[in-house]
Write a protein that binds this DNA or RNA. Sequence first.
DNA 1: TTATATCTTATAAAAACACTCGGGATTTGT
DNA 2: ACAAATCCCGAGTGTTTTTATAAGATATAA
Lengths: 150, 150
Amino acid sequence: MKLSTKGRYGVKAMFDLAQHMGEGPTSLKSIAERQGISEHYLEQLVSGLRKAGLVKSVRGAQGGYLLGREPDKIKIGDIIRVLEGPIAPTDCVSEEDPELCSKAEFCVTRAIWEKVRDSIADVLDSITLETMLEDAQKIESERNLYMYYI
Amino acid sequence: MKLSTKGRYGVKAMFDLAQHMGEGPTSLKSIAERQGISEHYLEQLVSGLRKAGLVKSVRGAQGGYLLGREPDKIKIGDIIRVLEGPIAPTDCVSEEDPELCSKAEFCVTRAIWEKVRDSIADVLDSITLETMLEDAQKIESERNLYMYYI
DNA sequence: TTATATCTTATAAAAACACTCGGGATTTGT
DNA sequence: ACAAATCCCGAGTGTTTTTATAAGATATAA
């Protein structure tokens, strides 16, 4: 039940892009440095995100990547699905064409995995890059408040 | 974000044990046959469950396994934790000694994985073998109702 | 035209997964 | 006493997934 580095790195990279919006294209090199990720590896992940329309690329010198749409229109679930595939604790409850077994209709264990799948999807689809930016700002201002009182 | 066969087989096997309570020890062979699982592989899984006290073993001919405690005292989360380890979409939010990074306190992505972890744990800890037995009975009686009206 | 980037494909080490096997210990029934 | 059933334990093995690394092609700004 672990996320692979693809999902983790992907969300980090997308959040990094969100934090640098309005500064022109952000290069993979700078993201990789800030987030401590292999640049070459990141290339592969971003390639998928680009094909899914979650980021736009600008080639050539001073090029890089931009968010594919507004941060409030990019759910964490979108990112995870591109990089890790459909949300599915088991194949028989995959969001995309589940591999139903003959007893699926009456399967009591299957019902559990469905609930797990839905609870994960609910969390991931309730958070957007915009939400994350707001959370980051909140943490930052609380931190300043704390500093003030020292 | 997939469960391995360990978790899936383990829950199936435990539910099988629950369904055969009161019939004396249930052999791995019969569980393996009913659930379509390799018997030798199942041995390994059950070994862990026994060490965790979720099942009791009876050795020798006519031996087998029994539930370690009442079915309403065995949560699916208990089974999953034994077989798959602590619930943790990432290492930094593991239920057991999380590998915190230096920025953990202010990490916005980490907060997401915490929510995912908690939502998974909530589902798995809200379902017991007893619940599953009730669900199975409900499905069975609905099925009989349907048959009656044909 | 040079440096900076993205893009694409290939290769590969390491880890995880899903068994498989062999043999030993324990108990029941004959 | 003995055979059959069953749990118990550790080692080995093939496959897949993960996590990169590398090389080279393409595109663009300065």
